[in-house]
Amino acid sequence: MSGKKLAVGLVAGVVIMVGLIMIAVISFFNANPTQDAAEGTNEFTGYIIAMEDERILVVSGTEDEVSGLTNETILDSRLPAIWFSVTMDQRKELEVGEEVRVTHNGVEDSYPGQSAAVTVEPTIGLDH
């Protein structure tokens, strides 16, 4: 009988230890400040100059710098530009030439940059 009690005690101890470790790991990730800031911490404001499938090219600059120029001319000017992947629902609400504010995650090192849009809002009515 004492062998069974010992085995049950060991199993119970292991289960309790695993539970405590899981609680500690979950608590760590919930309290970690980098976890809270992971989604859409960056903002980029500019004009949509191109749309392809599920992405938009947004260029930051004045309306005069951006209007009437071809995509190649704008990109040659090296104005800040990012291709944002967007959902089809987001894309349906957007138009080329529209000024937007995009919240997004990190940007890949390329020109133009590449990132995933979290939100895309027209700047009309927003404070710049």
Rank of each mutant, 00 (worst) to 15 (best):
V66I: 15
E72F: 01
L20R: 08
G68H: 04
L69F: 10
E72A: 08
D36S: 15
A31H: 07
L57M: 09
N32P: 00
Y47H: 08
G46A: 08
S60R: 14
V58Q: 03
I49E: 05
M22D: 05
Q35A: 11
G61V: 02
R55V: 03
L57Y: 05
F44P: 01
E39M: 11
T45Q: 14
I74K: 02
F29P: 00
L69P: 01
G61D: 04
P33D: 01
A37W: 00
T70G: 14
S60T: 05
L20E: 14
I16N: 02
N30G: 09
T45H: 06
Y47R: 07
R78I: 04
S77N: 09
T41P: 14
A37Y: 02
S27R: 08
M17W: 13
V59W: 02
Y47S: 06
N30K: 15
N30S: 13
L79E: 04
I82L: 07
F44M: 08
Q35V: 13
L75H: 03
T45L: 03
N42R: 10
S60V: 01
V18R: 02
L75C: 04
E63P: 10
P80W: 09
T73R: 08
M17G: 13
I49P: 06
S67D: 13
N42M: 11
S77I: 00
E65G: 04
I74N: 01
S67T: 13
F28Q: 14
E63Y: 13
I82C: 09
E39W: 08
V18W: 02
G40S: 06
A31M: 04
N32D: 13
T62P: 09
V66C: 05
E54H: 12
I49Y: 04
V58M: 06
E39S: 10
T62D: 12
E43H: 08
L79F: 14
E39G: 02
T62K: 11
E65A: 08
I56V: 14
P33I: 00
R55Q: 15
Q35H: 10
V15K: 02
T41F: 08
T45N: 10
S67N: 12
Y47G: 01
N30I: 07
N71H: 07
I48C: 04
G61I: 02
E52R: 13
T34V: 11
E54G: 06
M17L: 15
N32Y: 11
L57D: 00
F29K: 00
E54F: 10
G68F: 06
N71I: 15
L20H: 06
M17C: 15
A81P: 11
L57A: 03
V15N: 03
T45S: 14
V58T: 00
